[in-house]
Amino acid sequence: MKMQGLSDKVAVITGASSGIGEATARLLIAEGAHVVLVARRRARIEALAEELGGRACAVMADVSDASQVGPLFSLVREAFGGLDLLLNNAGLGFSAAFVDSTPEEWRRMFDTNVIGLLSCTQAAIPLMKGRPGAMIASISSTGGRYGVEGWSVYCATKYAVVGFHETLRKELGADGIRVSVIEPGAVWTEFGHNVPEQALRQRRQALDALHAEDVAQAVVYAFAQPPRVLVQEILVRPVKQIAP
C-alpha cells in the first residue's frame, strides 16, 4: 500500500550507494518519488540507478568538496525545477580513544559529517521554498545524544548535527520547510572504517542490530506526514541496545 502524497516528489540522498541511503532510495522509488542518488562510488550508484529504473538518477559527488555540491543542486534545479526532500546521509567514522586519534581523522569526519551536510543543506533550501511538505532530514546517531566511548570525535560531529537542526528548524519553519533528524543506534551497514569486521559483526549480532530498511522506514514515515506535521526527531535503536 502506497503512502499518500509521495508520488512525483523529488528527493536527493547523499551516501546513497549502500546502507541507509540505498534502503531509503528503494522505499521512495516504490512510493513513486524521483530520487537523485549521490555518492563517491560511481559504479555503485550507477548500477543502483539502473536497477531502480527511470525514477532514479546517479550523480557522483563528494559532499565534503564544496566545489562539487553546487553543480549537484544546479542539476536538480534544471532536471526537476525544485526539491522536496534532502536526506543528508553521507557519513564517516573512525574509532579511537581520543588520546590516540589524529587531526587527519578529525578533519575527515568534520568535512563529511558537518561541512558536507551544511553545504548540501544551504544549496537545497532555495529549491524547497514554496513546495508543500519540503523536508531536510539528516542521519545523526544515538552517539549524537549520549556519546560513545571510543568515538569521541565522531560523536562530536553528530552532536553538531543535532544542534544545527534544532536551530535550522526555527529559521525555516515560517517558510514551511520541515527539519528532521534521525538518530539510529546499531545498524547493519558498512559503517566503521577502522574497526575489525569481526568485532562489528559480534556487537551487531549481540544487539540484534537494526537493518538499514528499519531506519529508512523512519525517514519515509517522517516525510510522508501532512505538510503541517513535523516529525522533529526520531531516535531508533535495537531493543537490546540498552547503552548508547
Rank of each mutant, 00 (worst) to 15 (best):
R201N: 13
I182Q: 04
V99I: 09
I177N: 07
F164T: 15
P184R: 01
V187Y: 02
E166G: 07
A124Q: 03
T121W: 03
A96W: 01
I115R: 00
S101E: 07
D175S: 12
D208S: 13
R178P: 14
A174K: 06
E183F: 00
A206P: 13
A137T: 12
A156F: 05
V148T: 15
I177R: 01
V195H: 01
I115H: 04
I177K: 04
G192C: 08
V179M: 09
R108W: 00
L127I: 07
E104Q: 08
A97S: 05
L207G: 09
G116C: 05
V153Y: 14
A134S: 13
S180T: 12
H165R: 02
E190P: 08
R131E: 15
T157C: 14
F94H: 09
G144I: 10
K158I: 13
V161I: 15
T121D: 10
A123Q: 11
I125Q: 09
T121L: 00
K170N: 14
D175Q: 14
T142P: 13
L168M: 11
N113G: 08
G192E: 09
A134T: 08
A134H: 08
V195R: 00
A216Q: 12
T167Q: 12
E105V: 00
A137F: 06
P103L: 02
R178I: 02
H193R: 07
S119V: 01
D214C: 06
S140V: 14
A97D: 14
Q205W: 00
N113V: 05
Q205T: 12
G144A: 11
P132C: 05
M135Y: 01
E197A: 06
R201S: 11
I177V: 11
G185F: 00
G150R: 05
V114I: 10
E104L: 00
A174F: 04
G176K: 03
I182A: 02
T142H: 08
E197H: 00
G150M: 10
T121F: 02
T167A: 13
A199Q: 14
V99D: 11
I115D: 12
E166W: 06
T102E: 04
G143Y: 09
L168G: 11
A199F: 01
G143M: 10
W188F: 10
A174S: 12
V195Q: 04
D175V: 03
Y146N: 14
R107C: 02
R131A: 06
T121V: 03
V215E: 06
P196W: 02
T157W: 01
D175A: 12
G173Q: 10
S101H: 02
E197Q: 08
I125N: 10
A199R: 03
Q198E: 13
D214F: 01
T102C: 01
F191E: 12
